[in-house]
Design a protein around this nucleic acid. Structure first.
Length: 545
RNA sequence: GCUCCCGUAGUCUAGUCCGGUCAAGGAUUCGGGGCCUUCGACCCCGUAACGCGGGUUCAAAUCCCGCCGGGAGCACCA
């Protein structure tokens, strides 16, 4: 109260103490009054009606202005390494870049960061096309596509310029000694080279005088730099590995930092947006640009985003897709964009989900349920309901009335415009084993149909015998059922990779590939894209509750 | 160990730059109720947060100092 008065009338501020005591006296004097009298007095004083709650202040995450950005002149880039398809963790790369492209009417480049990598992390040919397909699927179409491997020679003149300015030296230490020296802040003997000597060494590197791993070009920073990660990083190394696009055309390959110090300038990139695991590279790029008197683009970062349920491992996915254990790159266990699409999760829902986090630098771990909720908003109203029973057990109902052999059910409980379908019902049904086991000897309702009494034991051989009771909708447990006549075998692929066999109602036979359905009391599922309509079993993939 | 980054409800986020109208807003989850041909959806209600300790100030989520906690980097990978 006091703060509000002071905030709205600055002239009161020097008198804060007086205001405070006046307010507390006033409050004390009216505290005992009955509410009706308070209302009267307020009315007597005039003034505005008590205002309703303030309008919502915000919907989600925030994105700051890009520093110095001119609408129409912004150039951004995404730089995936081609050793896997894009997965949910790449969401920020795609959608944050796309967000800013739209906001500033700029350009977004897809630049494959396909330098030679390492023995453990190598580019593979199939991913160039797969990743472009992923971008398309995600609705983030790049304005142009580049390959770092096409630009390798362009890096060499840059290296010369750095050497001529005394910014680098050729080091012939073995990798482990180099690491030790760096950690200890100790100089290798070659660090004392003059630019002329370095240039000689560099020409020897390019000319093939060294075997792979025998020599590197290192940046000369400061061995006393407090950050050990920043001491004399390697700029170029020699590799004889075969590259999927350029084979063994080059032996001297730039490291990521140098490649981007060159690439970001040559491609005219105006802002670099990337994950915060790359912040040390900002400093490297800037150091190189400063050395050459170049004004490079500013950097912005986002923090780590983890989806709790998604254990994403590129190497494991690669291995299991290769081995055939996974059902290709759209296997739900990969959490690839393809797998989300296969599960019926729309890329627009993913975009909303990703953008709700803003550009925050904090590391976040979020439950997949939040993504599911976003998707549900989009698909619930247009998705038809169907009955599905997992692990079915046949139940014959005695005394079942003839006129209940079929029934008509709405396709959506709240959307009459989605129509209805005729469903074949009793007297014989399939019920889920789990449901039966949960209600031995009880009266239950076959959902939307009739009430029956279940026997005490359900484990005997052959069909179970139940007894018809009545049609009236009572508050007893409701079980999902599928009429025996026309039941459709279904193979339901779950998110963890398990296949559940079950039976669905006849209408499922008419589904088309990529249709999204809701299996009642199970969840949203999507018919597999390569399922041949009419073939059995119907193949569907579980999406989410 | 060194360097950098980040701490607002169970989770994510708005607010922090520029102190006051923030007795802290939204989303999701959870709990209760309603409705319906689902245990889903929808509607209503509710629980729940400024990491801790000092300081500055009439006033601190916001500014300053210290601590604690979490993450990332320290590859001839990207």
């Amino acid at each position: 109260m006091v703060a509000r008065l002071l905030a709205s009338d600055p002239t009161l501020r020097p008198l804060a103490e007086e205001v405070r005591s006046f307010v507390s006296e006033t409050i004390a004097s009216i505290r005992g009054l009955p509410p009706a009298e308070l209302d009267d007095r307020l009315a007597a004083l005039g003034g505005p009606e008590p205002s309703k709650a303030a309008a919502p202040r915000s919907e989600g995450g925030t994105f700051p202005e890009l520093p110095g950005a001119k609408p129409g002149a912004v150039v951004l880039r995404m730089a995936p390494f081609p050793n896997g398809v894009l997965h949910i963790g790449h969401g920020r790369l795609l959608y944050v870049n796309d967000y800013y492209r739209t906001r500033y009417r700029g350009k977004l480049l897809l630049v494959f960061d396909d330098t030679i990598g390492s023995e453990e992390k190598r580019p593979a040919p199939e991913f160039f096309d797969l990743i472009q397909g992923d971008c398309e699927l995600a609705g983030v179409k790049p304005d142009a596509v580049y390959y770092k491997s096409d630009q390798i020679p362009a890096h060499y003149p840059w290296a010369r310029r750095v050497i001529e300015r005394g910014g680098a030296y050729v080091c012939v230490c073995p990798a482990d000694r180099l690491r030790e020296n760096r950690a200890a802040g100790r100089a290798c003997p070659e660090r004392a080279q003059t630019p002329t000597e370095t240039l000689e060494g560099w020409e020897k590197m390019l000319g093939g005088a060294y075997a792979a791993g025998e020599a590197v070009l290192r940046l000369r920073t400061d061995l006393a730099d407090p950050d050990p990660a920043f001491r004399d990083r390697v700029l170029f190394r020699i590799s004889d590995l075969e590259h999927p696009r350029v084979g063994r055309k080059y032996r001297v390959w730039p490291m990521l930092e140098f490649a981007w110090a060159v690439g970001d300038v040559e491609l005219g990139v105006t802002h670099v947006l990337r994950g915060k695991e790359l912040v040390i590279e900002d400093r490297m790029q800037r150091y190189i640009w400063d050395l050459l008197g170049i004004q490079g683009p500013p950097f912005l970062h986002w923090g780590l985003l983890r989806v709790r349920e998604a254990k994403v491992s590129k190497s494991k996915s690669n291995r299991e897709v290769q081995s055939g254990l996974y059902d290709g790159w759209a296997d739900p266990r990969t959490w690839s964009l393809r797998s989300l699409d296969r599960r019926g999760i729309s890329m627009e829902a993913l975009r909303e989900f990703i953008l709700s986090f803003g550009l925050s630098l904090s590391d976040i771990e979020v439950a997949a349920e939040t993504l599911y909720a976003e998707n549900r908003k989009r698909i619930d109203a247009t998705t038809v309901r169907r009955a599905f029973v997992a692990d079915p057990v046949r139940v014959d109902v005695e005394g079942y009335p003839f006129d209940l052999a079929t029934t008509t059910l709405a396709n959506h409980p709240d959307r009459p415009e989605l129509g209805s379908r005729e469903v074949r019902a009793g007297p014989s049904f399939y019920l889920a084993r789990r449901d039966l086991a949960a209600h031995p000897g009880e009266e239950v309702r076959l959902k939307d149909l009739a009430n029956i009494a279940l026997p005490a034991a359900i484990d005997g051989p052959g069909p179970i015998r139940a007894t018809f009771l009545e049609r009236e909708n009572r508050r007893i447990p409701r079980l999902q059922w599928v009429g025996v006549d026309g039941a459709v075998p279904v193979d339901l692929l779950e998110a963890e990779g398990a296949h559940v066999r079950g039976l669905a109602e006849r209408a499922v036979a008419g589904a088309r590939p990529r249709d999204i359905l809701q299996f009642e009391r199970v969840g949203f599922v999507r018919v597999d894209a390569d399922w041949a309509p009419g073939s059995e079993p119907a193949r569907v993939v579980y999406g989410h509750p």
